[in-house]
Amino acid sequence: MTDYRTVFGSLEEYAKGGVQIVDDDPKYYAFSNIFEVASQAAPYEKIAVGKNLEYVLEAIRAEGTSEWRATPHDEFALVMDGTVRIELFDPAAELVDPACGGSISLDEAPEGNSMGTVTAQRGHMTMLPAGKAYRMHCDGVGVVLLQTIEGPDTVYRWADICQTF
């Protein structure tokens, strides 16, 4: 019986593929690598690695403790590397307009009830529920891929992160 080895990436070890152009512009493929992006990011910077109209995928370097954020819609955090602890909070008052897109940063810890925590490792996906607040913590360095909508803190750095030739 064949022994298979599943290859995942990490900040410490990843290999990057690429676009081999025959007759096209490589920029049309917006080709990047999540680990490479996170390796050059500030902690909890929300760098778009995918964009589909208003929707984005953000690569986040998890390091230390993030600010508190409030989200108007469900978001989903997929840990790609490391161990990330996510605190969820049910605010006593509405913190973000439900009609908005993307999460907003909170200046201070919200008032309300702790919903609990999730300790997630590589491959674990956590729901960040609409109308709630959250923050992340990582003792070392981790990587999170966030499924969300573009918001005021989404960072666009396509020319730096994408293959251009």
Binding site: Y4, L78, G116, R122, G123, M125
Partner: peptide, 30 residues
């Protein structure tokens, strides 16, 4: 058969009373 080495551990969920249905996480790779 090709994923027999994929970690099957689930995330650790510690939900406060009353929030058991809203604190949700799972191992997508598993």
């Amino acid at each position: 058969r090709a994923f027999s080495d994929v970690d099957q551990g689930e995330p650790v969920i510690e939900a406060s009373p009353g929030y058991e249905d809203e604190v949700c996480s799972f191992n997508l790779f598993a």
